[in-house]
Computed example of a mutant assay.
Amino acid sequence: MYIVYILECSDRTYYTGITNKLEARLKQHQLGKASKYTRSRLPIKLVYQEPALDKSHALRRELEVKSWSRTKKQQLIQTYVGESQNE
């Protein structure tokens, strides 16, 4: 299963990506080995994750989320945080 995820970087910007191994990918980000963008903005924090049916769906969703404004991404994150607290 693929996951679409959003990281909050140390400069408060967001990074959106996909992976099929979230824990390993987060470790790569923390070590500065996953993306040029996050490498210079450490530490990072996982603020959102969403399952996708397959890689194709994950890529489409990633592009959709990346096209959004910061405000719209924050709304998505807040919805996720609220759902996580209710579990």
Rank of each mutant, 00 (worst) to 15 (best):
M1S: 12
I3E: 12
I3Q: 10
I3M: 14
V4Y: 00
V4D: 00
I6G: 01
E8V: 09
E8S: 09
C9A: 12
C9S: 09
S10I: 05
S10T: 09
S10G: 09
D11G: 11
D11I: 08
D11S: 13
R12K: 15
R12T: 12
T13P: 01
T13I: 04
Y14C: 10
Y14T: 13
Y14M: 11
Y15H: 14
Y15C: 04
Y15L: 05
Y15K: 11
T16M: 02
T19N: 05
N20Y: 10
K21T: 14
K21L: 04
K21Q: 11
L22P: 01
E23Y: 01
A24K: 12
A24W: 01
A24G: 07
A24I: 05
A24H: 07
R25D: 00
K27I: 08
Q28Y: 03
Q30T: 08
L31R: 12
G32M: 04
G32T: 08
K33R: 11
K33A: 13
K33T: 11
S35M: 02
K36Y: 06
K36Q: 10
K36E: 10
R39V: 03
S40Y: 08
R41M: 00
P43D: 10
I44P: 00
V47R: 04
V47C: 06
Y48L: 08
Y48F: 10
Y48H: 13
E50V: 03
P51A: 15
P51C: 14
A52E: 04
A52D: 06
A52F: 03
A52P: 01
A52S: 13
L53V: 11
D54Y: 04
D54Q: 06
K55C: 05
K55D: 04
S56P: 00
S56T: 12
H57L: 03
L59E: 06
R60V: 07
R60Q: 12
R60F: 05
E64R: 14
K66I: 05
K66S: 07
S67Y: 01
W68S: 06
W68D: 08
W68C: 07
W68T: 11
K72S: 14
K72I: 11
K72Q: 14
Q74S: 09
Q74L: 10
Q74H: 07
Q75L: 09
L76G: 14
L76Y: 02
V81I: 15
V81Q: 15
V81Y: 13
G82L: 10
G82C: 08
G82M: 09
E83T: 15
E83Q: 15
S84V: 14
S84W: 08
S84P: 05
N86V: 15
N86M: 14
E87V: 13
E87G: 12
